[in-house]
Structure formats: structure tokens, C-alpha cells
């Protein structure tokens, strides 16, 4: 209990001397001194709250130790870079194991509460000082919780982006069927973003495989709007700038109609009915060239 007498007993000059940074130093010393006990308490709370269930006790203890130390350090130095880096590193390790955002936020908030309670216990007889200590502690603790949570979410977003990228690349494979011949079977819905990615992938593929002929098969594309049709035309043109000839196969009557409507000169585009016909024509183009080159060597 805090009585009026206790509050009054705080000497007025101590108030002047106790800058927030000084209070933080006192606070840090307290947290260092009671490290073993507070950390233990925190770990117990984590398992009681059923957080980080994907991790073993030992792992939780090891991470808790690191988080605890980084936490205290961030309080002391008010520099959050090290903690941020640790949060990112931690996230990188635990995200693949299925740890969720609420768990990470949860454990940091638990630590904040465990430490706050120990401060209550320590300063319970000095209400004014407790208030000042909390004034110094709370903004720092909140900033730490924020830093860790943001770090985790950013890492998760990065992982998701990476996976999306991988899925997108898988969905439009650039296949090398024979030397200097690439096939790009396009299946499904093409939005402008995918169309662009597809083009970039194909252009890179032309360069790495030194392709001379590319067959783009759009049998699996049901609809094509003006934007995407333009992309297709641009892909053909860009491929030619790299010295590769494009043959488009599987053009449905509807898409052919679209191309004509937007004023695409189909005469400029090398189109063949189906994929097999396209490959045959590609091989004729290549075969001719391979033969003449062989003659010279």
C-alpha cells in the first residue's frame, strides 16, 4: 500500500536530478540484476499462455535469453538497430516453422508486463518514483514491442513476396526444347503484371539460352484484353530486338478478333495454328541455319 506519508517522503531535490535517462539506467541495472529470475518468469508465462507451441522448451529458453538481453540493451542505449536486426533474424528462423504474428507480439507484450510487474514490486513503496520510472519505461517498452512486431511482419511480407514470385515463375515456364529453341506455354488468366513478368522472363531466357526462335503458345489463354494483347505484341517486338524470331501458336478466333480490332497487324506476327505446327516451323527455321553454319566450320 502506498500511503500519503511515503509519497511525501521523497526528497524534492531527487526529482530534479532524476532525468529520464538516469531513471532508465536505474531500471536497466534492476533488470540486469534480476535477469535469471525475470527471464524464468517470462518463459513460464509464455508456456502458460500457449505461445510459441511450435518450438521446444530449450529453443524458447534460448530465444528468450537473447530477446531479454537485446531488450535490456535497447532500453539502455535507446538504439533499436540491434534489436531490429535480431527481430528480423528471429523472424527468419521461426516463420518457416509456422509461428504467427500474434505469438511474436504476444511474447514481447508478456515480457513488457513481466518487467513492469517487477518494477511495481520494487517501487511499490515509492509511488512517485514508480510513476517516473514507468514514464521512462513505457515509451521505450512500447517502441521495442513495435519494433519487434514490425520487424516480424516485414519479414513475413518478404517471405510471402518471395513465394508469390516463385509461384509466378512456375506458372509460366520458359522451356528449352532443343538448342536455340524456347517454348513459352501460357496458361490461364493474364493480367498486365503477369504479362510483363512473362515478357521479362522470356527476354532473359532468350539471352541465357541464346535462343533464335521462340514459340509462344497461347492455347490455354481464354481471353485477352487490349492491354494484354498489346503486351503480346510488345513481347514479339522485344524478342526480335534480341535477335529472336517469335512464332505464336494456339491463337483462338476470339483472340485473333481482339488483335484485329485493336489494329494489330497480324501479318507482322508469325502465327501458326497449333503448337506442333509451331515447333515444326521453328525447327525449319533453325535447321536451315544450323546446316549453313555447319558448312562453314
Amino acid at each position: 500500500m502506498i500511503s500519503k506519508r511515503d509519497v511525501a517522503s521523497v526528497p524534492p531535490e531527487s526529482k530534479r536530478n532524476e532525468e529520464p535517462s538516469e531513471l532508465l539506467r536505474e531500471l536497466v541495472a534492476h533488470l540486469r540484476q534480476n535477469r535469471t529470475q525475470l527471464r524464468e518468469e517470462w518463459v513460464v508465462r509464455i508456456s502458460e499462455t500457449r505461445l510459441l507451441t511450435a518450438m521446444t522448451k530449450e529453443e524458447i529458453f534460448a530465444e528468450a535469453t537473447s530477446v531479454y538481453d537485446s531488450y535490456v540493451e535497447a532500453l539502455e542505449t535507446e538504439a533499436f538497430e540491434a534489436l531490429q536486426a535480431y527481430a528480423r533474424n528471429l523472424s527468419e528462423r521461426i516463420i518457416p516453422r509456422g509461428v504467427e504474428t500474434h505469438e511474436v507480439v504476444g511474447i514481447v507484450l508478456l515480457l513488457r508486463d513481466v518487467l513492469a510487474r517487477s518494477l511495481f514490486a520494487k517501487y511499490q513503496n515509492d509511488f512517485k518514483k514508480l510513476n517516473r520510472i514507468l514514464d521512462a519505461y513505457e515509451p521505450a517498452a512500447n517502441r521495442i514491442a513495435n519494433t519487434v512486431a514490425v520487424g516480424f511482419v516485414q519479414e513475413r511480407e518478404r517471405v510471402i513476396r518471395q513465394q508469390q514470385e516463385a509461384i509466378r515463375e512456375l506458372s509460366t515456364p520458359v522451356l528449352q526444347v532443343r538448342e536455340r529453341l524456347l517454348i513459352l506455354p501460357i496458361i490461364g488468366v493474364i493480367d498486365p503484371q503477369r504479362a510483363r513478368q512473362l515478357t521479362e522472363q522470356l527476354l532473359r531466357g532468350i539471352r541465357t539460352n541464346r535462343a533464335k526462335v521462340v514459340v509462344i503458345d497461347i492455347t490455354g489463354v481464354a481471353a485477352m484484353d487490349v492491354t494484354v494483347a498489346n503486351h503480346l505484341v510488345q513481347t514479339v517486338e522485344a524478342s526480335r530486338l534480341l535477335g529472336a524470331t517469335v512464332i505464336v501458336t494456339g491463337l483462338s478466333p476470339e483472340i485473333a478478333q481482339t488483335l484485329v480490332t485493336i489494329g494489330v497487324d497480324l501479318g507482322k506476327m508469325n502465327t501458326v495454328g497449333d503448337l506442333q505446327g509451331g515447333i515444326e516451323q521453328a525447327e525449319r527455321l533453325l535447321g536451315y541455319k544450323v546446316a549453313t553454319l555447319a558448312e562453314q566450320s
Binding site: L203, R204, I206, R207, R210, Q234, A238, S239, L241, G243
Partner: peptide, 28 residues
């Protein structure tokens, strides 16, 4: 012509129509 440059060129409508192109010096 680099792949990224080719992409930017066609966006601008620059297709070097009527001019021969090749992947690199060797191909040229």
C-alpha cells in the same frame, strides 16, 4: 540490346523496324 533495354524500347514504341538485329557480336 539488353533484355531490359529491349523491354523499355518497345514500351516507347521503338522497334527498329526494318533493321536486322542479333543477340551479340558472335551472332551478328
Amino acid at each position: 540490346i539488353q533484355p531490359e533495354v529491349a523491354f523499355a524500347m518497345v514500351q516507347l514504341g521503338l522497334t527498329l523496324e526494318g533493321v536486322a538485329t542479333a543477340l551479340d557480336l558472335e551472332e551478328g
